[in-house]
Nucleic acid binder design. Structure first.
Lengths: 124, 124
DNA sequence: AAAATAAATGCAAGTCAGTTGCTTTTACCT
DNA sequence: AGGTAAAAGCAACTGACTTGCATTTATTTT
């Protein structure tokens, strides 16, 4: 189960970490730092949100996502494709297998694709 | 030619705008705001770089690009696909027709694709 | 179960990208 | 050349994210 993973990798299972894991277990869409912070404002500091997200990412429990409006998005599952509304930032995930053919309720204007890896120089 | 386009669309052809257009005519790869600013530091203010880039983009002389290291990248030609080195930020453009089969000198780790458009709610 | 301790949190202050307001300068029109 | 609207420059601001440090807390040891 999820909660063991943190301990297994030598991290403490603290209240803020629990709260953010719970947040993601209740939510299927990606979330920005601010969305997470707003949801937990009463309970944890914003700095802590950043730090917890960094740890959870390191441990592989959440993943960074590209988003248009606010800069960093995170999600509980690694997903490679999404459509993002340019106006309100609404983000919808597309399973790879379905891809273009399944886009609904969106007038697609353009796409951007980035393949990140290591160039010859940096690959040692 | 390029320089007419600005005037044709009702914009003045000022020194900062010339300098940035020249910068792009000498450069085939995308550039970040800071790269542009560093190259022209002696001659124009950073705020001006931002404002000129906004105008040139509006007029269609340059285009925004996704980049990994510094946030905003601009290029003189609209290109949809690139590979970005996670370590040094080196960015290489892929003509759509060639795509994956042509990637050289890169060990691709993963890709991200974003289709941006308008969701039902925002499309009016 | 209580004390010890290393790690994590919270707070304050800092950095860095990008923006805004306002005064001065400049391209272009006559 | 002179007038004027647009653009540049400067300073100060915002918002995302980071860092340093003192306090708190989850786990270890007894």
């Amino acid at each position: 189960m999820q909660k063991k993973s943190l301990k297994e990798q030598g991290y403490k299972l603290t209240k803020p970490r629990q709260l953010i894991l719970d947040f993601f277990s209740r939510r299927s869409q990606p979330a920005s730092v601010n969305q997470i912070y707003r949801a937990l404002k009463a309970k944890i500091d914003k700095v802590t949100v950043y730090r917890v997200l960094a740890v959870l990412q390191e441990v592989g429990l959440i993943f960074e996502e590209p988003g248009e409006k606010e800069s960093l998005y995170y999600a509980a599952k690694k997903q490679h494709h999404h459509i993002v509304c340019r106006v309100c930032g609404l983000s919808q995930c597309l399973p790879c297998t379905h891809f273009f053919s399944k886009i609904k309720n969106f007038s697609a204007i353009e796409h951007k694709m980035t393949i990140s890896g290591l160039c010859k120089k940096c690959a040692h």
